[in-house]
């Protein structure tokens, strides 16, 4: 039997690592991957609490989070492809179309 703290620490670590990636990295693709890591950390927490209460609602919600993450990845990568066609760069600091 695993204590519920262990998966919560795992969720915490994954979320923090993903947040650092989103804030520090400049490559759009790596930022998208970091967002996936954060969603994965949230999933781990949901499943841990689902196990804590013996209730399957958390697992169903985690499945919805996976579906939303897939949709987000599809649209996000389409935006990256579109940006790359017009700017030839995956660096977020160069994507200043709205500002200039």
């Amino acid at each position: 039997m695993i204590s519920i703290t262990a998966p919560l620490y795992l969720a915490f670590a994954l979320f923090i690592i993903g947040m650092i990636g989103v804030l520090v990295r400049r490559n759009v693709l790596i930022m998208l991957m970091s967002v996936e890591l954060m969603l994965n950390g949230a999933n781990v927490a949901l499943i841990a609490f689902s196990r804590l209460w013996g209730n399957l609602d958390g697992q169903v919600f985690a499945m919805f989070v996976i579906a939303v993450a897939a949709a987000e990845a599809a649209v996000g990568l389409a935006i990256v492809v579109s940006l790359f066609r017009s700017r030839a760069s995956a660096d977020v600091d160069q994507l200043t179309v709205l500002r200039d």
């Binding site: 039997m1 695993i2 204590s3 519920i4 703290t5 919560l8 196990r51 804590l52 209460w53 013996g54």
Partner: peptide, 8 residues
Amino acid sequence: FHTSGRTI
């Protein structure tokens, strides 16, 4: 949360 949760 130092528990392994409910019996399932």
